[in-house]
Nucleic acid binder design. Structure first.
Lengths: 191, 191
DNA sequence: ACCTGAACACCGTTCAAGT
DNA sequence: ACCTGAACACCGTTCAAGT
């Protein structure tokens, strides 16, 4: 939908602002999303922002909604059809290591859970991911209660690993260490 | 003569500001720590803040340092001497369920990892907790590499569980569900 | 339909002046 | 040694006026 226009065009749509917001979030986190800085980036004055959105919160929500609809469902579409839970768990962890924009946003959102709008979104995302993990564990032979617990543990270990791995100052895993760790997780968690 | 109806004393120390900061963080999160609001709470003007601290960042760091020195080491002192790793893991998870101020701060910090000062602190905290988990797993018979992986997985599941459990909109576990979950985690992770 | 530019409120920060 | 009160900068928000 991007018209082949000059980079310094000054006529924008709400979608342009949302894309810009997601870029800022991916690069510098949710806290760095500022209307004035974003307006500078888009070569307009901050006043024009308010023709498109009621306020900063509305932009954040619209941007997060766009991310959930596009990137997030795209990721799920890739992982969900994997029938074997061992392969599925590995696919989830593998995604963490990749530097795709979608994961940078996911990581940024995990670090900004003190924003109510982020919490609401992440509640949906977490529930969805745990649900299909639980389904996989049932296919793999666990009963309903065990599958529920195991999916919670799996998703928690996934979220927690991202937190640990993305915390500055903590040594990041090498490629070999990461593979060995994922092997260990798979052997420990997958029946 | 003393004016009798003045509500609180108006002579403060740096420590008073740090305690007030930790209260605000526990109640409303790191993002809600504002000098003006805190000054109102302490019945002084915001100008006086700058006699005690260079800026907001310095207050945040001093408050976090105080938390690490007091509450955090206190928690560790309770958990660290538990020899049996099964009991130790359970103790860690049990702490999550309690509503002590220290845990509210720990949870608030987990939700504000986009602040560099918080990241630096949490890197230390994570490393310390993983180190003594790894020691416990070695005592329990795992080799060094396995103990390292297992401690990472254990701490990740602990951090991730807090995240999931504290996300608004997600159904919180009942007391029975929590116990059953901790049983499941213990059986799955502890050799 | 979208943008500018001036205005205002809020909060972090500075500083001279108070006790 | 600690605080006040006025000032300024920055950013979110509003709005009348521009194209």
């Amino acid at each position: 939908m991007n018209p082949p226009s000059k980079p310094e065009r000054t006529r924008l749509t709400a979608e342009d602002w949302e894309h810009g917001a997601l870029e800022m979030i991916a690069e510098e986190g949710v806290g760095a999303l500022a209307i004035e800085a974003l307006a500078r980036r888009l070569n307009v004055t901050k006043g024009s922002f308010y023709w498109h959105f009621r306020n900063r919160e509305a932009l954040l929500q619209a941007a997060l909604q766009r991310w959930e609809n596009n990137d997030e469902t795209e990721v799920l579409a890739k992982i969900e059809p994997i029938a074997d839970p061992r392969q599925r768990l590995r696919a989830m962890f593998d995604f963490v290591a990749r530097e795709l924009p979608s994961h940078r946003i996911y990581a940024a959102l995990l670090m900004a859970l003190d924003h109510p709008a982020v919490q609401t979104l992440m509640a949906r995302v977490s529930e969805r991911r745990m649900d299909f993990l639980a389904a996989a564990y049932r296919e793999a032979g666990l009963d309903a209660a065990q599958a529920q617990h195991r999916s919670r543990l799996t998703y928690a270990s996934y979220v927690g690993f991202m937190q640990i791995n993305m915390t500055l100052g903590l040594p990041r895993l090498s490629h070999e260490e990461f593979d060995a760790y994922v092997d260990h997780v798979t052997e420990t968690l997958v029946p």
